[in-house]
Nucleic acid binder design. Structure first.
Lengths: 235, 235
DNA sequence: CGGTGCCTTGATACCAGTCAAATAAAGTGG
DNA sequence: CCACTTTATTTGACTGGTATCAAGGCACCG
């Protein structure tokens, strides 16, 4: 279940622990090997749907959402990246434009690896190849799960599934039950693929049922077992 | 857009043009190199969700659907395989159980390549590696498109998109406008992620609007342009 | 204070799912 | 080849889950 570590960046000289919360635009420092360290504040775009990739990004620290904008307004969040994962590999491998966007949801540090370096290394480093293959496979599995959920589960079920999945990916805060990621209601809705208001109503209903607590954007899970039951209910 | 050819099977000794329509269970003939030629009739299962992969399959001839069964009854078709594509690579690469099933939708010939052979070749053949990477990437892109469609488009839009997509994948029959694949209404519904009856109603409405013709399971596209317009309408 | 953005709740409409029943089509055995 | 069963398709009526529209509350901030 856990991903292998990333052979491209394990020995990377970039210090991820650095100043994450710096204000202003993405800050970049050139490294000796052509890589660049990029520091982003919350809500900044890493790359956008439709643009041309010039390299891949490695998420060293922070949280990034991968999302897609449909024709009209509404966006769909496809997944969140974990620290250590590579972003933008799909487009580079197929030599296509990005078909999704990446945006930070908190201050983050990424390492940019130029196209030629990535492709060259991918050509000769077997560990990297295995890492990328495994990552793509896993993302495909998650995407397919999401397709199934969207077409056969209700919004309530999907919301329950997603809360549990957020715990899987990000875990809890120190209290051991508050999910370690803060999303706006809209992001939550874009994640489940439902309207904003519907999502709020369902969160409230979960709260009334004693499954969760809500405190602003903090979400505390009180009864994960019942939440899981709800997620798999027949209808 | 077109996939590169498949380095694993291009020089494969298996003759795909053989007796596709043989009755009875999947027939297999051992090849010198441990591969097996498998002949399937329509509707046979190639592999099923939850079982353990022992190799990969190459679709030499025919049509295969990749689908997933949710907890309760309804199935979701994720995609169709093209001739020349490998099936079941995801599970093997991650060393996991299958998370989806593959079923023939017409008489088909597949080549089974045992796990050890596939993994060994994947380890040393760069072309194969590139092929698999490219395929996984493309499947991921398609899956993500589907997620977006499911969450922001109406059933009618999705149906239009899927008809156009079927043309892309399978093309037309000799008349140049009848889609070269025959699906049951239920398969159509499982593909768009909607109820059977809803799908039928929408197909009828497309017919009334003069966009398509229906003749049993044959679907003839009369006005592809308007179908495309319908697919991207605001709501 | 009066924005501005986010969250919440209410009322209403409608898309699409479900249930039910009538054909139509496709097998099946004699 | 026909009668019979089974399965697939179609249409209708109804219901309900969600989206949409609208208004109000709340917090943060210049």
């Amino acid at each position: 279940m856990t991903d292998p570590c990333n052979p491209l960046c394990d020995n990377c000289a970039i210090d991820a622990s650095a100043e994450v919360n710096i204000e202003g635009d993405a800050e970049m420092g050139m490294q000796s090997n052509g890589r660049r360290k990029m520091v982003y504040v919350k809500g900044e775009s890493v790359f956008t749907e439709g643009s041309q990739p010039s390299g891949v990004f490695c998420l060293k620290k922070g949280k990034v959402k991968i999302h897609k904008t449909g024709s009209h307004k509404k966006e769909q969040i496809l997944r969140f990246a974990r620290e250590g994962q590579l972003l933008g590999t799909r487009a580079l491998i197929r030599n296509e434009y990005y078909t999704s966007s990446a945006t930070t949801i908190e201050g983050s540090v990424l390492c940019f690896i130029p196209k030629h370096e990535f492709l060259a290394k991918l050509g000769k480093d077997d560990d990297l190849k295995a890492f990328v293959l495994s990552n793509l496979s896993n993302n495909l599995k998650l995407a397919e799960d999401k397709i199934t959920q969207l077409s056969i589960s209700s919004v309530g079920q999907r919301l329950a599934i997603i809360i549990l999945r957020l715990i899987e990916v990000y875990g809890f805060e120190e209290d051991g039950r508050t999910v370690a990621i803060e999303l706006t209601r809209e992001e939550m809705a874009n994640l489940v693929g439902a309207a904003n208001e519907t999502t709020i109503r369902l969160l409230s209903s979960f709260k009334r049922k004693g499954l969760i607590l809500l405190n602003g954007r903090k979400l505390t899970v009180i009864n994960a077992a019942d939440l899981a039951k709800l997620a798999i209910a027949t209808s």
